[in-house]
Amino acid sequence: MANLFRVSSSLVVAVLVALTVQILYFSPIDPVLLDIKPASSTNDNQLQNIIKLGEGLLKNPEDVCVDKEGTLYAVSRDGWIKKLLSNGNWENWKYIDSLTLLGVAPAKEGGLIVCDTSKGLFKVTEDDGFSVLVSQVNGSQLRFADDVIEASDGNIYFSIASTKFDLQDWYLDMLEARPHGQLLKYNPTSNETVVVLDNLAFANGVALSKEEDYLVVCESQKYRCLRHWLKGSNKGTTDIFIENLPGAPDNINLAPDGSFWIALIQLTSEGMEFVHNYKIIKHLVASFPSLINHVNGAKKKATVVNVEAEGKIIRMFGDSDGKVINFVTSALEFEDHLYLGSLNSDFVGKLPLHGTIV
């Protein structure tokens, strides 16, 4: 019996070793450990009071923006850019044969600038439709363009979330936790695109300060935002704008008063944080995609924060159990309301800011 036990134990060990080798060999990631302890998020449920704009008419609207005429737009994951009419109805404004539209921003001379993760950066106007601004960088196809903003001088800044993984594998980038992101600048006059910042930890939202003296870019993996100075004595330098956020920052938008609204997502389900502390577990999750749904916590709740120009949180709203809205990816303030995009909804959320509790 003892010999049989030893044989059985040896067989179990051999099988485990074989499985481990197989997982490591076929794993799509080369991970490093990630020990991020985000600040506590809010139990506030004010986002449960949102008005649902166009419920059932939009498919996972990642981002929203308002053009210079004051019209609201949303990019929908079915390839449509939706336009909110004055009568409250949504119009199918422009269509691109793509399921990978992400960030959108108003263009200074009219129209919109849109990020398509598989095709590049587009300009969209009423008369001309879609025109390509950037499709390649340094001879390589532009991939995973995430968010964009145009400065008053015409330069366009946009983020590349990952130079290794595509949109459908975005969570693999989170598991790998290596800095594959970039911040780029496109000069329409010279038609040149340059890398402003490299080695970013999943570069996401991009926003300019009110005076356009600095630019903020979100690093989702590190629960922080960086500030890159465009003017003044610090021009060309980069520092931390805010860190230890109560969630991973997604898109960021300038508010009328010079502060910023940042949408935060929960990268890891509660109780699953240990996954990021062990490489073998990361390999295991990455090798069996069905496990990602158990680890990924983005659909569990919603949180948005208002951060003043000095990098301090002054307001925080949430839906602590994702009852009404979750996976909020953008928050835009316009005419005393907050408009919310989400990758797990069929509407755009609208929250009145007047009278909300700070």
Rank of each mutant, 00 (worst) to 15 (best):
S162C: 12
I29A: 11
R77V: 08
Q46F: 06
S287L: 14
S290W: 10
L84E: 09
D67K: 03
P28Q: 06
S190F: 04
L58E: 14
C218K: 01
W80Y: 15
E310V: 13
N43A: 14
V195N: 14
L267P: 01
K82M: 13
G88T: 08
I81H: 02
L101F: 08
V17K: 06
S98R: 04
K323W: 00
G103M: 02
M174R: 10
S118P: 00
D166I: 11
K210H: 11
T303P: 01
D173T: 11
V307H: 01
H283I: 01
Q221S: 13
Q46N: 13
N326H: 14
K323C: 05
P352H: 00
S320I: 09
S233C: 00
E270H: 15
E270D: 15
T303N: 15
Q168L: 08
N89P: 00
V64W: 13
P31S: 14
S287T: 13
K94Q: 15
V196F: 13
K300H: 14
L197M: 13
L230P: 04
E91N: 10
T303E: 14
W229H: 14
V304K: 02
S135M: 03
V304S: 10
L291F: 14
V275Y: 11
P61G: 09
L24S: 13
D146P: 03
A161G: 14
P256G: 07
G271K: 09
S269V: 08
H337N: 15
L200D: 11
K300C: 05
E176I: 07
D169T: 05
I36F: 05
I252K: 05
E212P: 06
S320Y: 05
P256C: 08
D128A: 12
L99G: 08
K83D: 09
W229D: 09
K108M: 10
M316L: 08
S8W: 09
S76I: 04
P31W: 06
E192G: 05
L47K: 06
P61S: 06
I292R: 11
H283A: 11
L215M: 14
P179L: 00
I81C: 11
G205E: 01
K231I: 00
D44M: 10
G111I: 04
F26G: 11
C218Y: 00
G181Q: 03
Y73W: 09
K210A: 15
V328S: 12
A151D: 09
A255H: 01
T71D: 10
I292G: 07
N92I: 02
S342N: 11
M174C: 11
Y278M: 07
S162L: 08
C65M: 08
L338N: 02
L24F: 15
E308P: 02
V285P: 05
S135L: 03
L33M: 06
Y73I: 04
H228W: 10
V17W: 07
E333T: 12
G232R: 06
P246F: 03
L284Q: 01
M1D: 06
D146A: 10
L215R: 03
I240H: 12
I281K: 00
P352E: 05
T356H: 02
G56P: 12
S209Q: 00
A14G: 15
S259L: 08
D147F: 02
